[in-house]
Structures are given as structure tokens and as C-alpha cells.
Amino acid sequence: MASKVVSFTLNGRETEVMVKPLTTLQVVLREQLGHTATKTGCRQGGCGSCTVLLNGEPVLSCLLPAEDVAGQQVTTLEGLTPIDGLHPVQRAFFDHYAVQCGYCSPGMILTTKALLDRNPTPSREEIVEAISGNICRCTGYTAIIEAVEAAAQALKGGQNGR
């Protein structure tokens, strides 16, 4: 099987990349495009650290063949960060000590962004359900849940995310 060119929109920019068959989106993002915010906690679809947004929905980039994103919108954490300052979700994670080692943070933040886009006023149960696929070994999740709640408040208050 030969490599082929895959075109997609990465963080709002048209991107073309030569992809070997069955190469995952995770590998293309990290090793070919240098977008290392996307992490590699297990590469088995079990930890959520590689979460990116595909057309706004969270997906596990370690399980997704890169060819499958042709023509679609991919957002990584690099694409969430505004030029000046932080996205309200990032700000809430920072303010609420929802990061410790930082390794799960990119996936956790993108999962939160997707949750708040489709449900701006999630209940605690809905937050817990949304982040259940993202493993954090450090925080015990409490600070993360508080950060999601704070982010929801901040976004409601008109601090628009993208």
C-alpha cells in the first residue's frame, strides 16, 4: 500500500500531509506536524490523553487512521489557545489547580470544550460522564470537575470560546 496525501483543516489552517496507510492521526499530529500537545498515555484508546476534536466532537487520535480525517476539521489544544491569554476552559483549569503533572490536561481540556459546546450548563453527573474516558492519576478529579463547572459559568458570562 502506498502513502497518500491527506488534506484536512488543522486548527483552522488547511493542511496537507503525506500519510502511510494505517498511520494514526496521533502519530501524524505529533511526529509529522509537531503538534505535541496531543499526548500518548496508552495508545490503546484507554486513557483519553490523545483526545482531539474532530468537527468539534472529541475523538481518540491514537485509534483514528489519519486518512479518515480527510476534508474534516481537526482541533488540537494548540488550536484552542488564543493569541493572548487562555481560553476560558484553560483559565478555569489553571485557576482551580485542575492540573498536577499536566499529562492528561490537553485531552481533559478538549473533552471539556466539546462538552460545554453541546451542553453549556452540564450537571455534575453530566460532567462526570463526559470526562470518564480521560484518566487522571494525580488530582482525584475533584478539582477538574470544579474547573469544568467554573468554565461553564465563565462561558455563560460571555467570555466566548471559539
Binding site: C42, Q44, G46, I127, V128, S132, I135, R137, I145
Partner: peptide
């Protein structure tokens, strides 16, 4: 060998 088999408490177990 993976997080499906190695059971850890998640946010639902808080």
C-alpha cells in the same frame, strides 16, 4: 495490560 483491565476509580467513584 491496559486501562480496560486495570481497574482504577474514576470521577464516578468519588
Amino acid at each position: 495490560l491496559n486501562f480496560s483491565d486495570y481497574l482504577m476509580p474514576g470521577p464516578a467513584e468519588l
